[in-house]
């Protein structure tokens, strides 16, 4: 029973996840070959700004981050967030209340879809989502964020999915232009 449902779920995630990746300029989604249909993915976000702490302790912008996503066999029935999400780098010190490598904390319920997880990760990275109400995983980042002006966030407002732009071009004749 569950196997068929779980398998159908995985196939749907693959289809929807790849569709989202193909309509995004910043997301590259790689299904890992250890299962058919795949149950593990590496999501590579590049091009949208997040924050990291550099070696000198400064909070600076950074444009790359990778997340490992795993849908274990009982994912439709119970969720262990550290098991589902793994921060994979490349920067060793991401700066966000919800991230402390290798953990990344997001709201996930049993059966939450891959695309919803990808959106949540993107929102966390770009500081669209950060008011956790508690100290989260990175207490220093939580305290820092409370001292900042709200207008500083999100760090990057661009959407994950590429916007469809419809341009209506009208030819203007030379005479009219003159």
């Amino acid at each position: 029973m569950s196997d068929r449902i779980y398998e159908a779920f995985l196939r749907r995630q693959l289809e929807e996840g790849m569709a989202l990746a193909s309509s995004s300029d910043v997301l590259d989604l790689t299904p890992l070959p250890d299962g058919e249909p795949p149950f593990r993915y590496i999501a590579h976000f590049e091009g949208h700004r997040g924050l990291v702490r550099d070696q000198g302790g400064l909070i600076v912008e950074f444009e790359k981050f990778m997340v490992g996503i795993w849908f274990p066999e009982d994912y439709l029935r119970r969720v262990n967030v550290p098991q589902v999400l793994t921060y994979l780098g490349p920067h060793p010190a991401p700066w966000h209340p919800n991230i402390r490598p290798p953990f990344l904390c997001a709201h996930i319920e049993p059966g939450t879809a891959l695309v919803d997880i990808l959106y949540a990760c993107h929102e966390i990275w770009t500081w669209n989502l950060f008011a956790t109400g508690d100290e989260g995983l990175n207490h220093a980042a939580a305290q820092w964020s409370r001292k900042q002006e709200r207008s500083r966030f999100p760090v990057d407002r661009r959407p994950l999915k590429r916007r469809a732009v419809q341009l209506n071009v009208t030819a203007v004749s030379g005479k009219e232009g003159a």
Binding site: R77, V79, N80, V81, L104, I108, G136
Partner: peptide
């Protein structure tokens, strides 16, 4: 037991969060 469970029942199960 789970034959009578809905999505809501599963959502009510305590999720493990690293924070």
């Amino acid at each position: 037991l789970e034959c009578a469970w809905s999505e809501r029942d599963y959502a009510e199960l305590a999720a493990v969060h690293p924070c």
